[in-house]
Design a protein around this nucleic acid. Structure first.
Lengths: 217, 217, 217, 217
DNA sequence: TATGAATGAGCGTTCATTCAT
DNA sequence: AATGAATGAACGCTCATTCAT
């Protein structure tokens, strides 16, 4: 993209490549909407091509199959997000977990549609991709922390998963609601991550009404 | 549907009723295995009936459609689990969150296969059922806590979701590993819920090596 | 212990097996017509199922794919033919080549439609099946002949192919014409096989008119 | 624009005509390889254009459709072969059947790839083109033979087919093996055409082992 | 009640053909 | 003339569901 643009105004090899790229982008965009709305399995190729305003056959000119566009969508999208996140993190002198978390949540908030696709996605394994990216980030912090007390180093992967579980709920929360936004959410999340949930929570007993309620159902 | 006609103390349902119940149970059991192994969408009715040792047509004598057996599976399973959990909770004089959590995790550990089905299940919405049960329990505690500081009462649903996120990760952790078991897991979970994650985590900066690594990929 | 065939006139396990067998036969019969008329590649499954008066899905209950029904058709058909031929040959005290040839040609004449399917069939390799059966029969005779002069034993496979070539033309001849029938055809074929083609054929020069004709075209 | 510049005596076709002819030749050559390797139906236009190193659209500048290039291939190829054969025949003072056969087999041996295409070709009818050319040649000889004893003139077309059947097997033999070459093959073929197959063949009975073998299968 | 053969709408996918550049 | 992105009809095939037995 940033390589030699010839002096001549004509660009490099737009032999129809521009059209092709445009169609591919249309397909990806259409696929994002369709996958988000209907999930991987219930989405059909022709829903996607209809939404993109192209013929069915065109789909296969750009993607090998349904799996491929899903992967491209998630991978491209997550790749871009990752790039953006890394760039922002690099801007900080000391990128601590709170900083990183704020950046991640801001990015995730803006791309909640992408996360919806990734997390509702079809094949089970793929659904864990988003989680695993988070896990890797947390693992970095855990591995470099001088002391994990009261946990041992062996617990770091599990801790990373629990941390990811909190973020994942923040993101899925945004599937239904826009509030609180990224920054307030980050504050909440950081609060519980650092100090735990309100202490009162652990003292009150479950009210007998809970059982009463249940009896009815 | 299964109303008790308790004329006679023990069994009273004559004819093929016992046989019918047996077939239904076979189908549910077969469905659990098949759904766990292949997911909702990729599972076929005949896989289930084959595994159950009955004819395809028999399936429709017991369940209206594929969705119905999935729901029945999750609902029956979760219902039974819920019953067991409630019973255990009731045995406690003061069922506080730590107590409840231990009970829940113990039950979930034993029924991890059921959770796998519920959480990997096909139709997106259904995947949240398991989450929502947890959310409801946490909401109970949150609603009865005298003070949520530093959060407000308005945050209680969000907090419930974040708590559920942690539990959900414990359960999915067990999809791949059996260790730590339910009790140790409960201790870990309670620790982070009450006191937060290790403080050191929030001070260390992300090492530059993180970016270096990324550049390669 | 052999399964008990009840005294009762009812046959073994006609649980719907009769219906099934009937449908399969219908499909095979329909496929024979369709393949004969349109060739393997141009035949479609729904042409076959329409002709058989069943639904498309039914096809796949009986055959794994298009290849499978073609093979079944040719193999079943050829197998039956082979059985019939062997039975007839066995009836002879001394089944010499002339005898065998007559039997083969009679069978082929009656089943010319089957040969049309086999020989026009789609995948190239399969087209040679019919030829190879003939080759094997001829190879038997060649291998047991005391003397192949003026040929050597090494030539026996080639000779078998040349013999088969003659038979194959007899059979394809019948794709367009019914005359001469099997017996007269056998006489002709045996005549050229035993004594060669009319001697005069090898003396006359090609008339100049041949070239003249060609110039026009 | 400089039209017909016939400076050089040979070339007369100006502008892109040479280029055009070259592209057409490339397509034909590519098509021969592709058709030979994959058969008519399984060959795709883009395989051909890829192999020819031109764009798909270019194909339709030169041939009306897939059938057209197949026909052109077989017709051009066979036409060229025919020309070569005729030229060689004309060189003989008395081109008798043995002479003609040798010429034909030599040509066929060299062009076995073309025959593979023609004989494995897609649409059934076209597969008989090669055969029919042979039949026409033999018909010439048969029509000019003074005496067809023990056959009648009415049998001449059938005899031509039987003769063609032998040649066809020689050619298909070469699809798998290169030996014997054209000249030795011609000798063998002429031997059986003139004198028939080894006499011993018609006396030996089919050995009982033949049946035994069959029983196993 | 249980069966499993039959169904057919609907899917993913291919590829000969067109046409704007 | 040459290109190759785009097209869409048509195919093979699957599988949830029905129904005669």
């Amino acid at each position: 993209m940033e390589r030699d643009e010839q002096q001549s105004p004509a660009v490099k090899l737009p032999r129809g490549a521009k059209r092709r790229a445009r169609t591919r982008a249309d397909l990806l965009s259409a696929a994002r909407n369709v996958f988000a709305a209907r999930g991987f399995h219930d989405a059909t190729i022709s829903e996607i091509t209809d939404a993109a305003g192209v013929g069915v056959g065109t789909f296969y000119l750009h993607f090998h199959d349904k799996d491929a566009i899903f992967s491209a969508l998630v991978e491209d999208g997550m790749g871009a997000l990752r790039g953006r996140i890394l760039a922002e993190i690099r801007a900080h002198a000391r990128p601590t977990l709170p900083v990183v978390l704020r950046v991640i949540l801001r990015a995730a908030y803006e791309q909640r549609e992408l996360f919806r696709v990734a997390l509702m996605g079809g094949i089970a394994n793929r659904r864990f991709q988003a989680r695993d990216v988070l896990v890797q980030v947390f693992a970095q912090f855990l591995d470099h922390a001088p002391d994990l007390a009261p946990f041992s180093a062996d617990d770091s992967l599990l801790l990373a998963r629990l941390l990811a579980g909190i973020i994942l709920q923040s993101v899925t929360w945004w599937f239904e609601q826009d509030e609180p936004g990224a920054d307030l959410m980050a504050e909440h999340v950081l609060s519980v991550m650092q100090h735990g949930f309100p202490a009162a929570l652990f003292d009150v007993p479950l009210p007998p009404s809970f059982f009463a309620l249940d009896e009815l159902a």
